[in-house]
Design a protein around this nucleic acid. Sequence first.
DNA 1: CGATTGACCGAAG
DNA 2: CCTTCGGCCAATC
Length: 111
Amino acid sequence: MSLFFDQVYAVVQKIPLGNVTSYGAIARYLGHPRSARMVGYALNASHLRTDVPAHRVVNRNGLLSGKHHFHGSKLMQQLLESEGISVKNDQITNFKEFFWDPNLALPPLKI
DNA sequence: CGATTGACCGAAG
DNA sequence: CCTTCGGCCAATC
């Protein structure tokens, strides 16, 4: 199993309930600032894992870019709204307030 | 084995 | 403000 994928899952699991983060933020935290696509790819492979709240990960604009990959297109929005996050037109309102940056909240992996 | 494709991001024009 | 482009790396064709 790829270590990078596993790292992604570990970070996503640490996202506090009611907060969201972006693919790029996770990628940067893992030391791959320009491998945000790999984060998305990793989440695509997280279909089997129920312990990975992928709905809390959106793109840098707060847009639900991955909603199509959920069981239902509206499931992602419903999950976010159930956590107190408002979603309008596939976009998180006040995204900036709900944003959770692992680079600030978590201790750095490498010194 | 080369080409294409992603749940992306940032910089440049 | 909007569009274009390069980069990143794995999986699929």
